[in-house]
Design a protein around this nucleic acid. Sequence first.
DNA 1: TTGATTTCTTGTCATATGGCAAGTGTTTAC
DNA 2: GTAAACACTTGCCATATGACAAGAAATCAA
Lengths: 200, 200
Amino acid sequence: MNNENTFLSAFFRSAVANPEKLEAVMSCFQQRQIDKNCFLLEEGNVSNEYFILESGLARAYSIDTQGNEVTTAFFVAGKPVFEVASFFLRQESKESIQAITPCFVWSISFEELNKLFHGIPEFREFGRSLLVQGFAELKLRMQSVITETAEVRYLKLIESNSEIIKYAPLKYIASYLGVTDSSLSRIRKDTALQTTKKVN
Amino acid sequence: MNNENTFLSAFFRSAVANPEKLEAVMSCFQQRQIDKNCFLLEEGNVSNEYFILESGLARAYSIDTQGNEVTTAFFVAGKPVFEVASFFLRQESKESIQAITPCFVWSISFEELNKLFHGIPEFREFGRSLLVQGFAELKLRMQSVITETAEVRYLKLIESNSEIIKYAPLKYIASYLGVTDSSLSRIRKDTALQTTKKVN
DNA sequence: TTGATTTCTTGTCATATGGCAAGTGTTTAC
DNA sequence: GTAAACACTTGCCATATGACAAGAAATCAA
């Protein structure tokens, strides 16, 4: 039982108010610890776990047509971690999900999650809203890639997610932003110079 | 009653096998005709309709930070049409959805859709799978923008969605691909030259 | 039909970013 | 502790794309 688990209960409390239902939800999650560089999902497998990240930083990546590794998402503490097509459509995943720092996660299987969705309407609604939020965030990111320069995208990433800059190596951030690592290194140099100028 | 409506029943039949349930689903949809250039959703409104496009071509667009119009999605016949954040999270939409050609659509309100989701589990599953598919397609498009040149993206769009090239003006396609309309015009010229060369 | 509007193309030049390779500093593994 | 691997920076030059403006072609409205 996870009665006393403040992280999970804080995560679900606003969506599932009833204490018994909240307990039913929480008891379906198992805690796991993932070492740095280890995988929450490996390419080629059908994802069978939906995670909520209590602490740490993770990323999803895939291999593009030229054989380059592309970081497709970062996952920060307090957010769900899953590969939408593989988990919900039961397909082999084209992406891997990897811990960048050691991670504490809570995990639930596809089957258990669906049982909860079936039995607890407000939990189902909450699950849908998490899916919709991920979708909406990706739409924003798409618009940013389409309309803004790599430098602006980098500056916005710093503002909104400083822990990514802190722990992820530059090459992960570069491919996530859609530039090479040498370009991002130059962008970083330029923005540092601009900051210095302003200070003087 | 939409008993005899072959389009809608073909759309839902594989998901909702039971005839009474299928009838219950179909009877919640209303047919509408949208004139060319008219709107299925206007920026600033909370979307209250989920559409399925029987025929025609539509697009979603928004205005970016520099005041430019950016086409964020195209919608082709046989697919659902909705703005995910506004419809499901009841927010004011940042996008408009506009008919590029005259469109026949089937429409259902948020409230009715949720009633169906609540009462018919297999319909709920189907609704989720449509959401997940849209999400997964956007992920693919993001990877394409990050890793491929505008020319490759254009060629792939031609192959996969020739009706978009046929009916959408170049400037809509250009901003969807993330280039200016003059660049897309040059890309188009170059690819035509390449094709000619191969033929000779 | 005719003028107005929209769509598309093209020229010139500027800029952002990529490809490649070398070099330095930092972390990891044993 | 040491060698290897990794992470990051930087230089040089090539290329893709943008900004702006002019003009041609197609479409629309009265």
